[in-house]
Amino acid sequence: MEIDFSKAPVEVKNLRSQFGDNIVHESLDFQVGSGEILGLVGGSGSGKTVLMNTLLGLKEPDGGDVFYFGQNRSSLSYKDRQSLNNIMGVLFQGGALFSSMTVRQNIMIPLREHTDLPVPLMRELADMKIHMVGLPAHAATLYPSDLSGGMRKRAGLARALALDPKLLFLDEPTAGLDPIGASAFDQLILDLREAMGLTILMITHDLDTLFTICDRVSVLVDKHIAITDTLPNVMKHPHPWVQEYFGGPRARAAINAGDGAGAS
């Protein structure tokens, strides 16, 4: 399959999702630009994870279309969908590492499935990914249960990057990390985008992350995307949820911190 990387990596048109009578999304339109880091925010239960699962192909849309690099998902063959999946990586909230395998084996899984490289080379590439996400070399032979929360996220990220994806989905990457670990993770995401030319869509509630690394922010309220724009413009949006979200004490603290960092 030929993929035109000049087209928008992800585009959603008129999406409808529902579970029984409960409509989660209705006429939702959404676009992720090439090479950008897009933050997705929305209240609990607003359907952020459902949207991400739809984009990952874990859930079929109940209406509307999803496009990757200009190609409609529903019109693709099984084989084309598979090769599309290979250019997408995802970091689930808890890391979702296979607990019966070491970190290195976890990272080798996508390589084993989709390439026919010699095993020693796969092992070396896995070790390189471990190095790239900032894990110590001895983490390679540890099991996920031996890792701390932050290390598990890094290991999950290394597995997501195993096949050098073009498109990376992150579900609350900094949730559960301490502020120092969280900002180190933010920096890591920036570095990896630079090195690997990634397009990143992340669900996050971490205001610091939104302020420091997201190029644009999308707000999911009332079953659709109310606005997608740079953060200062999003904050001017009149929707009461947006005003409350960015007008709260936590947000003000993050804005002030961001200004301070900018000045110095």
Binding site: R104, D127, H131, M132, A137, H138, E194, A195, M196
Partner: peptide, 18 residues
């Protein structure tokens, strides 16, 4: 980006994992 990649790769191939 390629420069960063090469630097990462050079670093990774130095330290041998157990």
């Amino acid at each position: 980006g390629q420069k960063i990649l090469m630097r990462e790769a050079a670093d990774a191939s130095m330290g041998r994992a157990p």
